[in-house]
């Protein structure tokens, strides 16, 4: 039995399949992985039947829980697998589909099936038979099943994932970094800290100065509240971080932490004279800015609906 190959499964739930592309981009590492393991179950790669899921050693699950089919499959795969990896930001934190939590299911289905311009639906029918029903909100995978390992990223970097999976297959352990993006960001941090004097969007600022921290230049860069797994690729090319890898393990609510950081240090030199409304007035769409990828895992994971009295 010793030389029997390890059985890997992959699955997509409420995601966009982009994380599977990260697997497809393994390149030469795929040869090393296939020497140790086989892909036994993968709706992306092979013909699979949900009632014939084999026993798996490792199951890599992409995407969060959006509908009841997602939940059923997640629970089934948990039973069949020895080790479950929540793969990609949607699985770990809910991801961009999680912004749907700002609307009710009725609002979402009406928009998708009736109001959208590209949907001819004169009778105004909302499909409700033989299609999975949306749950009341998007949840991350760990909110639905036990998960043994998380690998965040939108999508996770292929080289990081390949290395992680090879380490696992060889019996090693994996540790996610505990530092934030600023630790690996090549931009120079100003000695006075991350204070902003104004908040600007990139189109207002134009090309940021080379080599200087983007926050100091007025851009909302989520690097301070984001885990350093990606190697700071975006800030390196003058694009502010949007937090797609999610926070470090020590942070519960990445968006709230980042709001705290920006507000505390805003024009910190004029602490006592600056108008307290000034920074709040310059930030629009707070949920979209600070919670683009992590709303379902945040402390308040959805928009509160009226009523309940």
């Amino acid at each position: 039995m010793a030389d029997e190959k390890i059985k890997i499964g992959t699955m997509w739930l409420g995601g966009c399949s982009g994380c599977h592309l990260a697997i497809a981009d393994f390149h030469e590492s795929l040869i090393d992985i296939l020497e140790l393991a086989d892909f036994e179950f993968s709706p992306v790669l092979c013909d699979t039947k949900y009632d014939e899921i084999p026993e798996l050693d490792v199951c890599i699950i992409e995407g969060g829980i959006r509908n009841d089919e997602n939940r059923e499959l997640a629970e089934l795969l948990r039973e069949k697998s020895k080790l479950v990896i929540a793969f990609g930001t949607c699985a770990v934190y809910g991801g961009i589909p999680g912004l749907g939590n700002l609307h009710t299911v009725e609002e979402l289905t009406t928009e998708a099936y009736k109001n959208s311009v590209s949907t001819p639906n004169e009778e105004g029918i909302i499909p409700n038979e033989e299609v999975p029903h949306l749950e009341n909100r998007v949840r991350s995978l760990p909110q639905a099943i036990d998960v043994d390992l998380i690998i965040p990223g939108c999508p996770p970097r292929s080289d990081v994932v390949a290395e992680a999976i090879l380490t696992l297959l060889n019996g090693g352990t994996i540790e996610l970094p505990t530092t934030n993006l600023c630790e690996v960001c090549p931009r120079e941090k100003p000695p006075e800290g991350l204070a902003m004097d104004f908040v600007k969007r990139q189109m207002e600022l134009g090309r940021p100065e080379d080599d200087l921290c983007l926050i100091a230049q007025g851009l909302v860069c989520l690097g301070p509240a984001t885990v350093s797994l990606c190697g700071a690729e975006c800030p390196a090319i003058a694009v502010p971080c949007r937090g797609c890898y999610g926070p470090t393990a020590k942070i519960v609510d990445a968006g709230a932490k980042m709001i705290s950081a920006i507000a505390s240090d805003y024009r910190v030199g004029d602490d006592k004279t600056v108008d307290p409304e000034e920074v709040a007035g310059q930030l629009d769409d707070l949920v979209g800015t600070f919670y683009s990828y992590t709303l379902p895992a945040a402390l308040v994971p959805m928009k509160m609906q009226k009523g309940g009295k």
Binding site: I259, Y266, D271, K272, V274, P276, E277, A280, M302, K303
Partner: peptide
């Protein structure tokens, strides 16, 4: 100056909980 920092922070939290429907 702790309360000055809090004051700036609170103004954003008001807007955030408004967006989150809490009001």
């Amino acid at each position: 100056a702790g309360n000055y920092k809090l004051d700036r922070r609170m103004r954003i939290i008001y807007n955030l909980i408004e967006e989150l429907g809490i009001g």
